[in-house]
Amino acid sequence: MKIAVLVNEGPYQHQSADTAWNFCKAAIEAGHEIQRVFFYHDGVNNATKLTEPPQDDRHIVNRWASLNKEHGVDLVVCVAAAMRRGIVEANLAEGFRISGLGQLVESGIQADRVVTFGD
């Protein structure tokens, strides 16, 4: 099954990015396809390479990047939401790409399910 995921909150402030990542991992392990993870609202903050959590904490940005590297998951950051919040190509973490809201609508059309994680 093709599952699309929408992440509406930034990392660390809310649990939604953690829950979304755990969900994606479990879906892939169960043999489903994560059609795309779309980052919207403050969710775009999941994509900055300037993130440096303390060593004993999880690295949320790198965790997302590993989904792209190991499983080819398409990680898309909304351009309008990103520009509002200062996320641009220059500070975009590896594995993510910046694109338009049309990518979210396309996910809604192409995927069998859309699961939203927010606050």
Partner: peptide, 19 residues
């Protein structure tokens, strides 16, 4: 667990998050 979460998503025709 998260695996069961995925199974629920697959079993129901659509998902609504009450944010």
């Amino acid at each position: 667990d998260y695996k069961g979460f995925v199974e629920l998503v697959a079993a129901q025709p659509r998902v609504q998050s009450w944010l």
